[in-house]
Nucleic acid binder design. Structure first.
Length: 267
DNA sequence: AACTGAAGTGTCTCACTCCC
DNA sequence: GGGAGTGAGACACTTCAGTT
């Protein structure tokens, strides 16, 4: 990927961040990146893995997550602040991407106690197949709790089809993988930063991310092996929208007393 | 490589009802 | 009053094949 292309995409992302509250079209972003609309869309997808509109939508929801936790604004106010003209649309988009409604997200302090399974996956499509993987960390501090999940989209959002929570980066297994095309996403929290996953206090506390895909699961496949590289999140990486499973100290007392699968239950 | 155009798809708005 | 949920319609966006 040449540097000029990445810089052009970064310019567009910076433009999006500065104008989140306004109505932004792909034309506007293409102008900011200094390319034609059609060519810009193609470049943007090559660099980020997602289309400009989906990236913008993810940025809006990420900002909304922060505002819900750090302000007393109403859900309607926040929906306007992040560029939605209809609180109804905002609420349904938030729920489908993050996993809980805006008000529930605020009440839970930004965490969830369990993850619902992707209800769109038909039971018959679950093949009993397995994805086995390992994770490597590029550089930097020691990483703690690590979430790895299987998603339909290049953006980690919505209910995962399968997931696991690990004490740290390492080998993992995703069981009961359904038929179809999937992306594996992982997010690793810095040790001691469990309280600040959504709004890191220092850059060193920022989660590390890694992903791979698309992985195509066919009926004749039984096990697929993947390798994930965890690294600090870059400007061009799509935001992680899933509400994190609660691994903070209070929750972890219960977590250790019970057993691991109950906390990350996929119901 | 850089870009265009058409067609189909997906997202958003609007308006409304229901619930707490 | 604030928030959740839904459905119809409009139109912006994506995709893909083609052109310069």
């Amino acid at each position: 990927m040449d540097e000029q292309t990445v810089h052009a995409v970064e310019r567009a992302i910076s433009f999006m961040r500065q104008n989140l509250a306004d109505r932004i079209t792909v034309d506007d972003m293409a102008q900011a990146a200094q390319f034609s609309k059609f060519y810009f869309t193609r470049l943007f997808q090559r660099v980020t893995g997602v289309s400009p509109a989906r990236y913008l939508s993810a940025l809006r929801l990420e900002k909304a997550m922060r505002l819900l936790l750090n302000s007393s604004s109403t859900v309607a106010d926040i929906s306007y602040q992040v560029g939605y003209n209809s609180p109804g649309t905002f609420s349904s988009r938030f729920r489908s991407s993050v996993g809980v409604s805006p008000i529930t997200f605020r009440q839970l302090g930004g965490y969830t106690s369990h993850l619902a399974a992707d209800s769109r996956v038909h039971r018959m499509d679950r093949l009993g197949a397995t994805i086995r993987g390992s994770m490597r960390v590029t550089e930097g501090g020691r990483r703690g709790f690590t979430f790895v999940g299987l998603f339909r989209d290049p953006i980690p959002q919505g209910p995962p089809a399968s997931c696991a929570l690990l004490p740290g980066p390492g080998p993992f297994v995703l069981n009961d993988v359904p038929n179809g095309k999937w992306f594996v996403h992982a997010q690793s929290i810095a040790i001691g930063a469990e309280e600040n996953v959504i709004v890191p206090k220092e850059s060193a506390d920022a989660p590390y991310v890694g992903s791979c895909g698309p992985i195509v699961m066919r009926r004749d496949a039984s096990t697929i092996v993947v390798e994930l590289l965890l690294r600090p999140q870059r400007t061009v990486d799509p935001p992680v929208l899933l509400a994190p499973v609660d691994v903070r100290s209070d929750a972890m007392r219960n977590f250790r007393a019970e057993n691991v699968p109950d906390v990350v239950s996929v119901v």
